[in-house]
Design a protein around this nucleic acid. Structure first.
Lengths: 201, 201, 201, 201
DNA sequence: ACTGGCGGGACGTCCCGTTGAT
DNA sequence: ATCAACGGGACGTCCCGCCAGT
């Protein structure tokens, strides 16, 4: 197989990434042996390692893409859209995400490599969105943006875990409603209007 | 062939489990090699495999214990206590829990073995507690017990993930407050008393 | 196979080293695959790597032993004995020595490890012997000990190469005579001038 | 399919050989991977394998050239010139020579291929030169040409090894003087007997 | 003539669980 | 009950040479 065109190259890389995601999802990082990657992608070791210098490289690239996709989704469409995505989408990549988290914690070198790769500007756009909604009164402002953001992160990660573990996922609308009840601002009426004086934590 | 007393035996098993937990937490399941288990426990392969028939056996036992402990904590002391535990406790075992979840999803045989081991009655006690609080008006009753329970599960798992990944954990009180605002029943006053008419999902 | 006695352990290690030497000699370092090491020693990977942490470790240990043996031979019995050994002995280990030399040159880390392992006192004993012979008039003293030593080293290494490459080795006595003619001191009568009738070798 | 001129072709081949020599010297035969050959030559696999059917082919060609060059140097300019070359020249190709020798010994097929390639007439010219010097009285004649030749070979190979291993090489003049003292014929006055006071180097 | 994607074998190392000995 | 030597399978990576394409 000779030098290939740019589109062919891109298509080839996507094929590898797709197969790899399925592998990582199904078997976990360690369980996704190179033999299984070959099986799943239909390509040989030679082909795979021509495009990715190692199994870890492949894995990081997948994580990076997911990370960007999800942060962008939040920044552009908000929490609700993200919850729906997490609940409804094929759970395969969720497992990859968990795997990723574990390695992030237990593997120093991996954490370092990740920091170099992850796009930091997206994190800012997320912050901006939350602050905007606080200013507009849609989100309570008696908690800091950071506190709100972390809580949302907790809920989202929790959804990932439950999906990733194969539990029956909670209904998306229920989660959305509960979280909105939790973080709703005073400006809008529904639950909880009386004591706007509530102290900050 | 010396025989040891029951207390010695118990102490030996605890020692193995403790070392194993540290290993699983630090290195993940696959990374927790038998050599490292030996190191961490100060015992030899022979001793470890004398009490546990395989590495997986060891792992399942650890997971079973954590699972029981946490469900019991919720059943007896409620959500608030559980959040505080999750946020404040040594995050080592959290990583083990995540590892556990991954295997639960990706490994059929493992899932089967787990079902045989996990105590089902605790799950009932958790349900009972939630229903009790709904009846008492402390928890909203426009959502089913199952919906509430799953939401709480999501938040708790999310906390585990964030802690387990080594992120800065959110403040326990903030999480507690937000979740309480989400699930609070109508009976008590604070945020949201006016529209009790809100439809069930 | 359980814990073994000290003599058994020593015997086991010798067996591994012997097989490894044959392998390295026959196939070179890279050619001595672990599979061949297993074959040649009659032991499994598990057994081999239980005693030596890596293939390189095994190799260095062999080189260290040869190095010590030869330096000691020179220090105790002199050049003549060493030449005879090099010419007559099984050439297997000579190839190992060459292999060793190449790695010493091309592999930085290897050179470092070697420096830590090689016995430095033997080098001193060699020097002492040469200086002693110079003082006694047996070796010329118009060249420094270092110059003499290096020349002898050159000749010895040359013998190793010729043997190691499988060339017909030169006759030991001829080499000894030529080298002695080269380094003989003034005190003794030089190369049989008296009887030009000296028999041809 | 472009065809290149003969000079271009030659230049291309030289470029490959040069890069290959550097690679073999720096990394050894096995360590000189095709990737590194590409790097060092600035050409691709395709180009290299277009001119040489395999890595081994490339290696043999290098060895053949060196072999011829050195034998010719001896035949034309004698031992002294060869020693100086060996001591002063870039040691890179020396490592290649050692590598070559090892393969010559350990690899049957390689030895066969070599015999087909090496120029036999040069060996004769070397013999002729030694015999000529013996007849002229410059080299002792109480040893056969073969014995002298082998001894010189030993010394020269020894120099190669010491250089190739990265040891501090002995001074060329010292080696020349010692070897001349060893092989000098009776016709000439022997090693400076007149002035026993000869300065130390 | 030259490129480089690719196949697929082989390599060193790791690692689990067994077993004979203590 | 505990120890550690060991077997042997599996893993990620490397690497050579082929060949389809330019």
């Amino acid at each position: 197989v000779p030098k290939i065109s740019d589109t062919d190259k891109q298509e080839r890389i996507e094929r590898i990434l797709d197969g790899a995601r399925r592998c990582f999802a199904r078997y976990g990082y360690e369980g996704a042996t190179v033999a299984r990657l070959e099986e799943e992608t239909g390509l040989s070791r030679g082909a795979i390692f021509n495009w990715f210098s190692s199994k870890e490289e492949l894995f990081v690239e997948l994580a990076r893409r997911d990370n960007e996709r999800l942060l962008a989704l939040f920044a552009e469409q908000g929490f609700r859209a993200l919850v729906r995505t997490l609940v409804e989408e094929d759970p395969d990549w969720l497992a990859v995400y968990l795997e990723f988290g574990r390695r992030l914690r237990s593997d120093e070198a991996f954490r370092t490599r990740w920091k170099e790769r992850a796009a930091p500007d997206l994190r800012d756009r997320v912050r901006t969105r939350i602050e905007g909604e606080q200013a507009a009164g849609a989100i309570r402002d008696d908690l800091t943006e950071q506190e709100i953001g972390r809580f949302l992160g907790v809920v989202l990660d929790g959804l990932v875990v439950q999906r990733g573990m194969g539990f029956e996922p909670p209904d998306a609308e229920v989660v959305v409603r509960l979280v909105e009840d939790a973080i709703r601002g005073q400006g809008r009426a529904r639950r909880g209007t009386r004591d706007g004086t509530r102290a900050r934590a």
